[in-house]
Amino acid sequence: MGYRVLADATVVVHFAFLVFVVVGGFLAWRWRILIVPHILAAVWGLSAVTIGIVCPLTVLENWAREQAGIAGLPPSGFIDHYLTGVIYPDSAIGLVRALVLGAVLVSWIGFVAIRIRGRAVPVGR
């Protein structure tokens, strides 16, 4: 049972990571310290999608599932197992990736704009 709990906890952390990849840049608008971890998370996510870096969370989940006697994730990985074909259709993967990339880029542009505006000298001073 302990390994099953570990596998389930890993799924929760993995989903939290994916949410952070999408919205972390927007959170950095308020808490600027989050921009560095968000950049790292976004680069990791982009690397996983483009060059197939294996995520350690996927490795941990597979190990815990194996220890619990549960089938591991398919070779296509976490996103394909839990999201593609479940949350959005297989045919929309390109659109979903483009939307995620767009959200990340908009959040970074907004972050820079907010930082520049915050440094501007008020008019009349």
Rank of each mutant, 00 (worst) to 15 (best):
V43D: 10
S47Q: 13
G94W: 03
V22K: 06
A92G: 02
L99G: 03
A71D: 04
V54Q: 14
A64C: 00
C55N: 03
G24Q: 06
I35S: 14
H14M: 00
L105W: 13
F20L: 00
A7Q: 04
F78Y: 05
V54F: 12
D8Q: 12
L60W: 07
I79Q: 06
A71I: 02
Y82D: 12
R30P: 06
V13L: 13
M1G: 14
I33A: 15
F78T: 01
L18E: 13
D8L: 06
A42S: 11
G2F: 09
R32D: 15
G72N: 14
P89S: 03
F111I: 05
V112F: 13
V49F: 15
H14P: 04
V121Q: 08
V59P: 03
V112N: 06
D90C: 10
L18T: 12
D8P: 02
W63R: 01
F15H: 14
R115D: 14
V54Y: 14
R65M: 00
I51Y: 09
L40F: 10
R117D: 15
L105D: 09
A92C: 02
R65H: 00
V121W: 05
R97Q: 10
G124E: 03
W29V: 02
A42G: 05
L57P: 02
D90L: 13
G85N: 06
C55W: 08
E66S: 00
L101W: 10
D8V: 04
V5H: 14
W29L: 08
Y82K: 07
V112W: 11
A113K: 15
R125C: 08
F20H: 03
V104G: 02
L27Q: 08
P75W: 08
R97K: 11
F26Q: 11
F15Q: 08
V5I: 15
E66N: 00
V112A: 11
V11E: 14
P74C: 04
R30H: 15
Y82E: 11
V123Y: 10
L99P: 05
F17E: 09
V43G: 06
M1C: 13
P37I: 01
L34M: 06
R97Y: 11
F26Y: 15
L6A: 11
P122F: 02
T58W: 04
V23Q: 12
L105I: 15
I35Y: 12
Y82M: 03
A71L: 04
V19T: 11
T84Q: 09
P122K: 03
S107L: 02
M1K: 13
L34S: 06
E66F: 00
P122L: 01
V22H: 09
V59E: 10
I87T: 13
L40P: 02
L95I: 13
L46H: 12
V23K: 10
